Simulated assay, not measured.
Amino acid sequence: MQNAPLRRVQVMIVDDSAVVRQALTEVLNADPGIEVLCAVADPLLAMERMKTKWPQVIVLDVEMPRMDGLTFLRKIMAERPTPVVICSTLTEAGAATTLEALAAGAVSIVTKPKLGLRRFIEDASADLASAVKAASHANVNRLRVAHRTEPQQQPGVAPPKFTADAILAPSGPKAMQQTTERIIAIGTSTGGTQALEQVLTCLPRVSPGIAIVQHMPEKFTAAFASRLNNLCQIEVREAKHGERLLPGLALIAPGGKHMMLKRSGAYYYMEVIDGPLVNRHRPSVDVLFRSAAKCAGPNVLGVIMTGMGDDGARGLKEMRDAGASTIAQDEASCVVFGMPKEAIRMGGAQRVQSLGELPRSILDFGAGKRIEGK
């Protein structure tokens, strides 16, 4: 009996650069799990092609003639929601537009430089393929109205998958004892921009301090924090090295840097450092969670949310073993149920909750209540 043929993810590329279209087509078609249906120069041509064959995933530029990518994205999400990966230039201006695209329903970001484009795309081929495959599994019904800088590597070869051991050693047998100040550590990836917006906008000014790792390239995290700050009652900003974590403040790890929680007396502060990719990410959720386990123990609530892969799953288990309270987002409310699923499988989650339940749990924990399993 022959094995069933591999079902390939069918992709449409929409980019006004012929060089980008050719390079993306080559690297994606080289993956046996992906098939590029077509590569077109603008959204109007894309809509003509989509009349006869609708793709499973669209790789979309945001700056194009005739119709911009953001307008096209909103049209797609209104008519027939489809997973979209934004292919954006790594600039501050591009970051602002890309964040609008994520808010409008795009699943994730891949970045492209202005120079050395073909070599960059070839070097990042494993990331491109992973982004497309993750998008193909996205629950687009969870997308409301819902990366990183890599070192050079051989084309098509994924970087080594380091654990959090590359940044800091595991906790000892006893975590630091509880103090009066309670804090929150959150880790998320694919679909996390919308999920974080939904959670953080529900929090009042009087809320526990929150440390966040959202997988996102550098230059994008500052714009993302600024966007959330304009929407939320709490203050939200990109973390700086040595910055104290205070009540009513959420600090987001800068793209391209690891972020760790540290303690000085009764106070917590953030350490922002360079270092190798951990679980192929920088920032890594595992690094934040391990640091929280070591310095906060029962005084921290760990929350792992929507995302592809397993970054944060081991760290959440370490937090639970150190006496922390831990929650995983449930499958029904996730865009991609990868990271929470692995955390649950490893026994790291005391409780599994929907996205809508998380703000109340954060406030309850900050008020001194324990998060019991259910």
Rank of each mutant, 00 (worst) to 15 (best):
N3M: 14
P5E: 08
Q10C: 00
I13P: 07
D15Y: 08
D16Q: 01
D16I: 01
A23T: 14
T25G: 11
E26Q: 14
V27Q: 11
L28A: 05
P43C: 07
A46V: 07
M47A: 12
M50H: 04
T52W: 09
K53S: 12
W54V: 11
I58C: 06
M64V: 02
K75P: 00
T89D: 00
A93G: 11
T98M: 02
E100D: 14
A104Q: 06
I109A: 09
L115I: 11
G116E: 07
L117N: 05
D123S: 11
S125D: 02
A126W: 15
A131K: 13
A131P: 04
A135I: 10
N139M: 07
V140W: 08
H147I: 01
R148M: 02
Q153Y: 06
V157M: 10
A158C: 13
P159V: 14
A164E: 15
P170V: 06
G172C: 07
K174H: 13
G192C: 09
A195M: 05
A195R: 09
L196G: 01
L200E: 00
V206D: 14
P208N: 05
Q214K: 07
P217C: 04
A223K: 13
L228D: 04
L231Y: 04
E235Q: 06
E243Y: 03
R244I: 09
G256F: 13
A266Y: 02
E271L: 05
L277A: 08
L277C: 14
P283E: 02
V287F: 05
R290K: 05
P298N: 10
N299D: 15
G302W: 03
M308R: 11
M308I: 04
L316W: 04
R320V: 00
R320Q: 13
D321L: 11
A322W: 04
P340K: 03
E342K: 13
I344E: 07
L355Q: 05
G356E: 14
R360S: 11
A367I: 00
K369L: 13
G373E: 14
